[in-house]
Structure formats: structure tokens, C-alpha cells
């Protein structure tokens, strides 16, 4: 965090991408990623989120984690806009393999193909993987 603070003081905005590849409730990765995204956003960095492979399941509508006594964190994705986190990229091929469509997602996203996703990763200053 001290590094991020220095960045802010220098007015040096870096591009951070959070790469989400895990389904939401079988492990803690998805919830932890979301916590770190909110921290990064608080430091006024250029934050984007990528959802590919099983990570696309995190954005599915109508999740009710209370059914398994877990924190229902999916609605938090709707709050990202308030933190000026507006770049959410979802991989087209990952959706198709899993029988998901864009209109089943909880927030508006930009659906991109695999090649574009790879290019977006390459454009970043920092990539954090979950």
C-alpha cells in the first residue's frame, strides 16, 4: 500500500488490471479480489477488471449466497461505478463455453474476445491475478 500512496503523491496514475478467473463461492479468491479493487480505486488509480474462464460466474445475476451461509457479495459489483471503476471486460469465449449470455450478468460490461483480452492485459502497468 505504501507504494500506491507514493504513486498518488507523485500524481502518477498507473493502469491496474485485476484478472478474475475463479468461480465466486467455491474459494475466497473472488471476494478478496473485490476487496483489493475497492482499495485500489480509493487511491485514484486507473482500475479495470477482467473476467475470464470461471471468473465470468462472479457476475451472474440472481446469486443468493445466503443459501449456503456465505456473504452475498455479487451486488457489490453494482457499487463499483460509484468508485469510478467502470472498465469491466468479460471474455466472450468464456461466457459461451459456460452457457452464459451478457444479459444474464449483474452489471453492464464490455464483452471482448480472447485476442482483445490478451491485448488489454499487455497494455497494463500492473496485472493482479485472482
Amino acid at each position: 500500500m505504501s507504494e500506491a500512496m507514493d504513486l498518488e503523491q507523485e500524481g502518477d496514475i498507473k493502469r491496474f488490471m485485476f484478472v478474475n478467473r475463479k468461480a465466486p463461492h467455491g474459494s475466497i479468491y473472488a471476494l478478496e479480489a473485490l476487496e483489493v479493487v475497492l482499495i485500489a480505486a480509493a487511491f485514484d488509480q486507473d482500475v479495470s477488471l477482467a473476467f475470464l474462464d470461471d471468473g465470468v460466474f462472479q457476475l451472474r445475476q440472481d446469486q443468493n449466497a445466503k443459501a449456503i451461509d456465505m456473504k452475498n457479495f455479487a451486488p457489490t459489483f453494482r457499487a463499483l461505478e460509484d468508485y469510478d471503476v467502470e472498465k469491466l471486460y468479460v471474455e466472450r469465449e468464456s461466457l459461451a463455453e459456460r452457457g452464459l449470455t451478457e444479459d444474464e450478468l449483474i452489471v453492464p460490461v464490455e464483452v471482448v474476445d480472447r485476442a482483445r483480452m490478451g491485448a488489454l492485459m499487455a497494455e497494463q502497468d500492473v496485472v493482479l491475478s485472482f
Binding site: 465466486p24 463461492h25 460466474f57 451472474r60 440472481d62 446469486q63 443459501a67 449456503i68
Partner: peptide, 14 residues
Amino acid sequence: LGPDLEARGIDTAQ
């Protein structure tokens, strides 16, 4: 398992 479907937003119709 029903509760695991519900947690993940999967309707039984799907």
C-alpha cells in the same frame, strides 16, 4: 444440490 444452485444464481429451469 439445490442450495449450491441458488447461491450461484442457477435457476432449476436452466
